[in-house]
Design a protein around this nucleic acid. Structure first.
Lengths: 275, 275
DNA sequence: GGGATAATGGAATAATTATTCCAAAACATA
DNA sequence: TATGTTTTGGAATAATTATTCCATTATCCC
């Protein structure tokens, strides 16, 4: 297996793009290939040259030429792309999950199945229960802040870190309060800033304190937490609740991260438009 | 193309039944085939005899015999069943994304819905594509390490942080390499330790370097990445791949976190039992 | 309409992949 | 431990499949 052609599409998406580019000016037979392939991309992984050629009603050699025009060295290279991306619809998700669990309680595969399931349930329940008004309010508050302070410790820290990362990528001035060196950076909270506080039961005291501090200084506070009775809720200008399904002692965080992402991206684009 | 054997399974379900019937009393090599095939049914349609045989760790001839025991005349006939029965392939997610962008539907709630959907798809595809052997191998490696070093920067950092958190909760000695102060802590890597390196395209150089460093010192390295061709893969003793569905520029991380959790909890309980 | 250029089909060949077969090894039984 | 039986690995072969090449046909441009 030698080097691939430098211009060969490396993903199904790239393939699709290239296909539309190329299709425009193509002689008759080759266009037949392009059309047929476009309509039957899902068969490439499991067909032979001859089968596809018959389907497109062209001789095999025409199809070979088509593969080369698409940037591949030949049919095999093109097929490899599709075989690697191939994921059939059956063993449907639930069957597969059962198989994993059959490996025996406590086996890594069974654990994975449980966490996958927990994540999925969390996402589903988030989709059903989201409070759109609260979300919109949160976005509005953060969109007009100078700097966004992100606080979340212990199990909430990964979410805070990701939120800070996405803010950064979207050019939103943000500061992650990570507790390094036990510095609380409370003096970084300045008028015009806003805070996102993330915490779940058992609520980390430092997070609650910082949220209160922000509130006392008159900064708007958005909280991302597990229920409205959370101790940070009383300092909140907007409350986003995410009921995460746990498996064992650990939360999947899927729903929480989805929420954080949506928040960050929405804030990011709101600010872009405001500029 | 001659008559098919009268006893060959005519549907995937029949195949599955026959497989369980037959697996019970089978000599060693053939049982390996049965197990591997059961766990990788979805790859039969797009693999060669040699590929599957390698995967099951048997010579090709053993796999041929297995096909015949299953009632087929040979591998080709068995493969035909899977090629014909496959359901239309992958969800065309990126097209939807493009549409969404074009319409400019940037309402926070709509964004959230997309991230929820991306997370759900990622989790499902993880369930379908997880390599159980790699997972078991990774758990075994980490279970017998003195200290587990966790490395993951940028977008992988949240996962690394959570992994370190869970290790800590499960009393697994773990060190999170977070890049604070640009210290790489390479001298913390000691004989008897192991490393988990987490990175996705575009791969962070520091992570790759640290993984190589660990490898050079003879530590076992487990990598959690997006594809087997990842630059860290060549330093890996176990490769866990997670194909995460992106929405826009940001990954949902759902599947990655589920994998990390399963890994950490499995390692934690394996060590408890060893004590 | 003539000359150059591009496209086409099919047959020849190369490469890959499936399949068979048999000697050697492992195993069971006495 | 000897003997028959089953299982195994690998090399040889058969079949399929991809790929190239070139003579023929169509198309374009002057």
């Amino acid at each position: 297996m030698q080097d691939e052609s430098p211009l060969a599409p490396a993903s199904i998406d790239a393939f699709r793009d290239r296909l539309t580019q190329v299709t425009a000016d193509l002689p008759r037979r080759l266009r037949q290939c392009a059309d047929y392939i476009a309509a039957n991309m899902d068969r490439i992984a499991v067909s032979t040259v001859a089968e596809l050629a018959t389907g497109a009603d062209v001789p095999p050699s025409a199809l070979m030429r088509f593969c080369q025009i698409m940037g591949f060295s030949g049919f095999s290279e093109m097929q490899r792309l599709f075989r690697e991306a191939y994921a059939p619809g059956w063993p449907d998700y639930s069957t597969r999950l059962r198989n994993l669990k059959d490996q025996g309680t406590g086996s890594p595969a069974a654990l994975l199945a449980e966490f996958v399931e927990a994540g999925r349930l969390s996402l589903e329940s988030l989709a059903k229960s989201v409070d759109e008004n609260a979300l919109n309010a949160a976005v509005a508050l953060l969109a007009r802040a100078d700097t966004v302070h992100v606080v979340g410790l212990r199990r909430a820290f990964p979410v805070a870190a990701y939120l800070a990362y996405v803010f950064d990528k979207m050019a939103v001035p943000a500061m992650l309060h990570d507790g390094v060196g036990n510095l609380d950076h409370r003096h970084a909270l300045r008028a015009g800033d806003a805070m996102v506080a993330i915490t779940f039961a058992p609520y980390s005291e430092e997070t609650v304190t910082l949220a209160q501090d922000a509130r006392d200084r008159g900064l708007p506070v958005v909280v991302l937490t597990d229920r409205v009775t959370s101790p940070v809720a009383r300092f909140a200008d907007a409350i986003l609740t995410v009921a995460e399904v746990d498996f064992g002692a650990f939360r999947s965080l899927s729903a929480t991260i989805a929420m954080a992402l949506a928040l960050a991206v929405a804030v990011g684009s709101a600010r872009e438009q405001a500029v």
